[in-house]
Design a binder for these strands. Structure first.
Lengths: 371, 371
DNA sequence: CTGAGTTGCTGAAAGGTTTCAAGAAGATTG
DNA sequence: CAATCTTCTTGAAACCTTTCAGCAACTCAG
């Protein structure tokens, strides 16, 4: 679906490490499989008990400085690495939080991820990123995996917000926060941006500029954001006294640049009399692909086609024609979601919340001076 | 360092889930903390032994269909979720592989990550992504964490390839493959693209177009790629009979769009007589930022300033002025790296390899028709 | 009907850590 | 100096799976 714009072909060379002498090569043929030193070995080497080593690890303040030094020396010389599986099994809690992203290739989500990481680090937790890549099977696999790992909690921008798997996690003890989607549900918190309003802003702007034949480019229609933004667009039309059916829908298979190009191809192929004069895209990747394709097929933007994107990713402003877009507070979204998750897993009086942010239209050249 | 182009400010609304009735709210004040059903409970419910449940999980073919059905029914009704920590502790192996990225916000690395995922999935493993974000401390933290987790292996695009931590992992049993860096070292495999050649290609192209005052934009100089690409640039100058000191170096603090804009600011501020007529950037993000800033300050690209990027990310072609760039086989890089890792952890006769791919110059408008 | 081979299931041990009640040694008080 | 408190350290139990030797029951050939 999403693909490199050219097949990955390349010539390659293979070398053994130049420094590998005969001996060293022979020596590492089989990995030494040296039984990694455990807490037990450290205790023996330092001449203390198991419990003391554990204390050095987890409550250093209760062990006397001299003992602690001995233990730390032993750990260093043996190359001790704590076995986190065993720790977690016994202690019952994980120090990890996961963000299951809809599309890691979309800078919007990596910005959200940055916000998540900042909040998590501030609380002493680490974040693992997972990429469902808009594939429901992968999403399901990752949810299973994360539940089995007993992570502290899962942040997710879901493909299918009604997935039964998604509902089950919280009931079984893994807190879940839905990011970039409002969910009306007792099971999780959610942090979202008002996508209906966003769609409305975009279309209102285009209507104000005098556009009449407007296209909506987005899909698949299983993704909540795609639906809401379209519904917002329709609502704007209604408010302006036009039938929502006037919205020309171009459904795409994913929210990627490549799909945007495909839509551009279809759109540019229409006779000028029927071709829309403006397009609102469900995200910036689609908009960028659409823009690129239309320009290369000879359409002028915004004169022949005005384009509005969504997300206002960093590349939107740097596009061939700087893109008008609906901005969302990306990092804040992630930070807030992580904070809700942390609250849920530490505060016994936690109450689920739905936080909604308000989007903002950023007008640039791709719609300016039209008509 | 990398930041939203506007501070994250937004108005927000907070709601409790609208469906939350009094009772349900009260009911979930404290999480039920229902002792998650384990293999033991399942065994009891199905009227079989522990071992049999484990067999259903791990070797379903050895248990009779009728027993298996009973066990599966019990698992479903109890909502059994395997505890991966315990599994891993006992079985001694993880089904997870991690890719520690230099910058998750750079589409180049997410493309590499896609290749990694494809290869891993084909082998039945899952991938966790971690983002060091060009921060050495974070990289170190993640390496520690992954080692403690006893993941199957670590793929990494390092900030500092001489980090002692990086060297230690393989010795202790966690295989490491370095991605997008060639490492001359007995401890790991590596998969790279010849960055020196890439730098050479870029500069040779600019020289051929008649440019003489050429800038190199990149940094920090601790990152291997930055160094190699610069060295390639110098080599091209030498080959053309010019002193490598002619290369005007603009050092940046990171490889981001924002830093590229900063470099653009500096560059555009120079008097036209001393200003370079061409810039080669260490990656496309820098190039895009540079391009954007220079254009907005009134420079024409390529007439006043030709620009060459590196990586040929998808957005390069869609930029204000389509970007000439040095292409690397992104997904293939990731796929190959993952395959090497899998070989290392399954094949006892594994020998470390250094695979090197060859980059390719893609010429677009940002350098075309110059001078 | 016996002995050997198969198939399916069992139960205990093991894996590396944390936790905790309890003990030892040393310091302080009356 | 005895009694009480502190400060450190100890050792065994517990966390949940997987593994594996062994057992029971059944099949089949001779």
């Amino acid at each position: 679906m999403a693909a490199d714009n050219a097949p990955d072909q390349a010539s390659s060379t293979v070398n053994r490490p130049s420094g590998s002498r005969k001996e060293s090569t022979g020596g590492r043929r089989r990995k030494a499989k040296q039984h990694a030193a455990g807490v037990k070995a450290v205790a023996a080497a330092a001449g203390v008990s198991l419990g003391t080593v554990s204390n050095v690890l987890n409550r250093p303040e209760v062990v006397s400085p001299v003992t602690r030094a001995k233990v730390e020396a032993a750990m260093a010389s043996l190359g001790f690495v704590r076995n986190e599986s065993a720790r977690q099994l016994r202690a019952g809690s994980s120090r990890i939080l996961a963000y299951l992203m809809l599309d890691a290739g979309n800078p919007f989500f990596t910005d959200v991820a940055k916000g998540v990481e900042d909040a998590a680090r501030a609380a002493g937790l680490s974040v693992f990123l997972c990429n469902s890549n808009e594939d429901a099977d992968r999403e399901a696999d990752y949810l299973d995996l994360l539940e089995q790992q007993r992570v502290q909690g899962v942040l997710i921008t879901p493909i299918d917000q009604n997935s039964s798997r998604l509902r089950k996690l919280p009931a079984r003890g893994t807190p879940v926060v839905v990011v970039d989607r409002a969910i009306d549900d007792d099971e999780h918190c959610s942090v979202a941006v008002n996508d209906i309003l966003g769609g409305e802003l975009a279309i209102a702007h285009l209507l104000e500029l005098g556009h009449d034949r407007i296209a909506y480019v987005g899909g698949p229609n299983t993704i909540g954001q795609v639906i809401d933004r379209r519904d917002g667009a329709r609502r704007a039309l209604r408010k302006a006294g036009k039938a929502p059916e006037n919205l020309i829908e171009l459904t795409t298979g994913a929210l990627t640049v490549a799909e945007g190009r495909g839509a551009g191809q279809r759109l540019a192929g229409l006779p000028a009399t029927r071709r829309p004069t403006a397009a609102f895209c469900a995200n910036d990747l689609l908009a960028l692909g659409l823009l690129q394709q239309c320009v290369s097929l000879g359409l002028r933007v915004p004169e022949d086609l005005a384009i509005v994107g969504y997300d206002d990713i960093e590349f939107a402003a740097a596009a061939a024609v700087p893109l008008t877009s609906v901005r969302q507070p990306r990092q804040l979204l992630g930070r807030t979601a992580a904070e809700l998750l942390l609250d849920e897993s530490s505060n016994p009086d936690h109450e689920h919340q739905r936080v909604t942010f308000t989007p903002e239209l950023v007008v640039r050249t791709s719609t300016r001076g039209t008509l």
